[in-house]
Design a protein around this nucleic acid. Structure first.
Length: 773
DNA sequence: CCGAAACTCAATAGGCGAGC
DNA sequence: GCTCGCCTATTGAGTTTCGG
């Protein structure tokens, strides 16, 4: 955000003055036109043409659904028909505070390029008739988009267009501009409904003749909405596309003005206005066809609405085609990341090829996570890339977690970098988790840093878990902070678990807080386990609460374990609930062990269910122990299933179930790690499944783990080595903290090198108690 | 549309107690 | 006393929304 300097303000004023001048000139021009027109009293059709446009209460009520704010934050604004030869724009919604005097920035911009000899005015017929009295963000565009298939709203839209068309000077061909995707979709619906007929195509560039109530008009279709270039802050390429549209409109209105309208004259007029070689146009069309073939397997050259920007990929150039084919061969995930997440990379692919290549080779599968807008837009900036390099060397595997939009966009700011350094020193390997978008974007704000320091002192090691995006963004809100304090006093060290994004973002909502209170009283110490994101975000939904109640009665003490995010998010899905019911009857009190996030999220997948069934038959009462997150998430992978099969045969049913767990599943998936486990099996024999806990499974290729293991296996002997290393809390400390290993060795010597005694001692201090042995 | 922020969901890693 | 199996916290990835 640029500072509001005097210089900036002055420039803005100069801009405004310029806009006003343009607008004034246009108004003068329109006035002079009006005098030239047939006096109203001599025009026999006047009455018909001067129909006012009204919109029924029913339509307005329906349209109110798009208002995110309060109803009084919008007014109905309808532009009345204009005579002369206006350009009628089938627009999306009016500008904020619209009125007869308002001229939007978009319209001012359009007027600068539109041919004033032919266009007497720009007349907006908006799909949504509600004008915000605050800011446009209160209009939910996604809701407006759904109206494109609503016959009632589309019919009303085209009824209003018909009245506008009637007002246009007789004996001229009315010109209409269908602006943007949603309006284009509404146009298609109007055609399907028979409200509009598309009589003929005048130019393959998107000019057609359409008809409403036997009144013909010429339309420019399938072009971006004109305000798009403003939202892009007039970026050169967006500006170019906007100007191209305006020139197409000029070509269109000039042809209409001649009265000689045919596909030849129209296409020629547009190509002349655009000053583009027709062969070039053809090549571009072929390029688009190539790209849709590559991405969707069809050569239509038409892109789905969500990807419509991809039509601007210069896919007609051989070097762009080569780029696309190369990245396609690395997997569609990578190609989609570049095209959809890489900002405007898609406009100039070849010049980024080399640098993308380097990072792909480094990051491999993390490449797609690494690509974000802020990185993409700086890939050719040497200073930026040098800093990226430094952090890549520092953070290694954590690098792409650290690099988010907000960090990337500040990487060249020295003040920012200095603060980054401070926190890097403080938090060590928790650093990249802490440095999320919300924190990074406030790191230079001293007011923000003060409460951050306070909480850092309060929570110590739990600090970075507490600071999630939602908390960080509210740290300067006193009311929020007051509530935070209340809960901190109540929950103590469970506090940072309770404060998840969804809770934090609702902490000031009294209705939410009331429900929170009820559950807090009910669940006591288990409260913060239950209050996960998935639940918090639905706490005010009565249907959800009713189902929750049913399960609370059923499961009693196991309730809060059962309700995880994946279950909560599906509790209102009847098909899901039916399957849940089946398993509840089958498994009885083992039910909530079986239902974990990974199972819940796949319960409606029939292929998954079929495999589940096979294992249920095989393993019987051990089934729910076997099905954990790690297994469930890989059950449809044939290679994984084959490996599972091998271990099942190798270990036999009982050992197999003991052996498998979330992290083991992950480990055996990888060839090299699986090979390691086979070697351990040779070495440890029957003790393998005692040894193979989560902590070991996740460290099998960690050189530090291997070194520690090598030091202890002979000291302890196979049996006790397995029993001691098979404990998560031991193995994590002995690998991560050299001082801990030294302490254990001290105790071992004190115990006369008795392995069994050491095992008992460590067992006695299992878990967090190990920190103080 | 971009960059930022918020939210959601899945999965891994670590902790610990019931019951043999 | 010792396991196994369960439970919970934390992490990470992905998606959606906001605001200009």
């Amino acid at each position: 955000m640029p500072a509001l300097t005097d210089e900036c303000v002055a420039k803005r004023k100069a801009d405004d003055a310029m806009w006003e001048k343009v607008a004034d000139e246009m108004i003068i021009k329109e006035m002079s036109d009006i005098f030239k027109r047939t006096p109203a009293h001599r025009d026999p059709d006047r009455k018909r043409r001067c129909r006012r446009i009204e919109v029924s209460d029913a339509i307005i009520a329906k349209q109110m659904q798009c208002v995110k704010g309060k109803p009084e934050h919008v007014t109905v604004y309808i532009q009345q028909p204009m005579s002369g030869t206006p350009l009628i724009v089938q627009g999306l919604y009016p500008v904020a505070n619209d009125s007869a005097e308002t001229i939007s920035a978009t319209e001012r911009d359009m007027r600068k390029t539109l041919d004033r000899n032919h266009v007497t005015a720009v007349s907006w017929n908006d799909f949504c008739v509600l004008s915000s009295t605050t800011t446009n963000k209160i209009i939910d565009q996604d809701v407006v988009a759904t109206w494109a298939t609503d016959p009632e709203i589309v019919a009303d839209y085209y009824r209003r267009l018909a009245i506008q068309l009637d007002a246009v000077d007789a004996d001229t061909a009315p010109c209409v501009f269908i602006a943007g995707n949603t309006c284009q979709a509404a146009h298609e619906t109007a055609i399907e409904l028979g409200l509009v007929k598309r009589i003929t195509e005048l130019s393959p560039l998107g000019v057609t003749v359409c008809e409403i109530d036997s009144k013909c008009f010429v339309a420019l279709e399938s072009r971006p909405h004109p305000s798009w270039h403003l939202m892009k802050a007039n970026a050169p390429f967006a500006r170019a596309i906007f100007l191209e549209t305006m020139e197409m409109l000029n070509g269109m209105v000039r042809c209409c003005a001649t009265g000689d309208i045919s596909s030849d004259t129209m296409h020629q007029s547009i190509v002349t206005a655009l000053a583009i070689d027709p062969e070039e146009l053809q090549r571009r069309a072929e390029g688009r066809s190539f790209l849709t073939q590559l991405l969707y397997g069809n050569p239509s050259g038409r892109f789905p609405t969500k990807h419509v920007h991809l039509r601007n990929v210069k896919a007609h150039l051989p070097e762009v085609q080569a780029f696309l084919l190369k990245w396609q061969s690395r997997g569609m995930k990578q190609l989609w990341a570049i095209l959809l997440k890489g900002g405007d990379l898609y406009l100039d692919l070849p010049s980024h090829d080399q640098v993308l290549d380097t990072w792909y080779k480094r990051l491999d599968d993390s490449f797609s996570a690494f690509i974000c807008g802020s990185v993409a837009s700086r890939l050719l900036d040497d200073a930026f890339m040098a800093r990226l390099e430094t952090w890549y060397e520092r953070l290694g595997g954590n690098f792409q977690t650290f690099i988010c939009n907000s960090v990337a966009s500040r990487l060249l700011d020295d003040a920012f970098m200095a603060r980054l350094e401070t926190w890097y020193e403080r938090l060590g390997d928790k650093f990249q988790t802490f440095m999320c978008n919300s924190v990074a974007s406030r790191l230079l704000d001293d007011a923000f840093m003060a409460p951050l320091e306070t909480w850092y002192e309060r929570l110590g090691a739990n600090f970075q878990a507490f600071i999630c995006g939602s908390v960080a963004s509210r740290l300067l809100d006193d009311a929020f902070m007051a509530r935070l304090d209340t809960w901190y006093e109540r929950l103590g060290d469970k506090f940072q678990t309770f404060i998840c994004g969804s809770v934090a973002s609702r902490l000031l909502d009294d209705a939410f807080m009331a429900r929170l209170e009820t559950w807090y009283e009910r669940l006591g110490g288990k409260f913060q386990t239950f209050m996960c994101n998935g639940v918090a975000s639905r706490l005010l939904d009565d249907a959800f609460m009713a189902r929750l109640e049913t399960w609370y009665e059923r499961l009693g003490a196991k309730f809060q374990t059962f309700i995880c995010g994946s279950v909560a998010s599906r509790l209102l899905d009847d098909a899901f609930m039916a399957r849940l019911e089946t398993w509840y009857k089958r498994l009885g009190d083992k039910f909530q062990t079986f239902i974990c996030g990974s199972v819940a999220s796949r319960l409606l997948d029939d292929a998954f269910m079929a495999r589940l069934e096979t294992w249920y038959e095989r393993l019987g009462c051990k089934f729910q122990t076997f099905v954990c997150n790690g297994v469930a998430s890989r059950l449809l992978d044939d290679a994984f299933m084959a490996r599972l099969e091998t271990w099942y045969e190798r270990l036999g049913k009982d050992d197999f179930v003991t052996f498998m767990s979330g992290s083991t599943a992950k480990a055996i998936e990888d060839d090299a790690v699986n090979q390691r486990i086979l070697e351990w099996h040779e070495l440890l024999g029957e003790y393998l499944c005692t040894f193979m806990c989560n902590g070991v499974a996740s460290r099998l290729t960690d050189p530090r783990f291997l070194a520690v293991a090598a030091r202890w296996i002979d000291r302890l002997g196979r049996e006790h080595f397995c029993k001691i290393f098979g404990r998560n809390s031991f193995v994590v400390r002995v690998v991560e903290q050299p001082a801990f290993e030294a302490k254990v060795l001290g105790h071992f010597i004190r115990l006369s090198s008795n392995a069994k005694a050491l095992k008992s001692f460590l067992k006695k201090h299992e878990g967090r108690k190990l920190d103080s042995i």
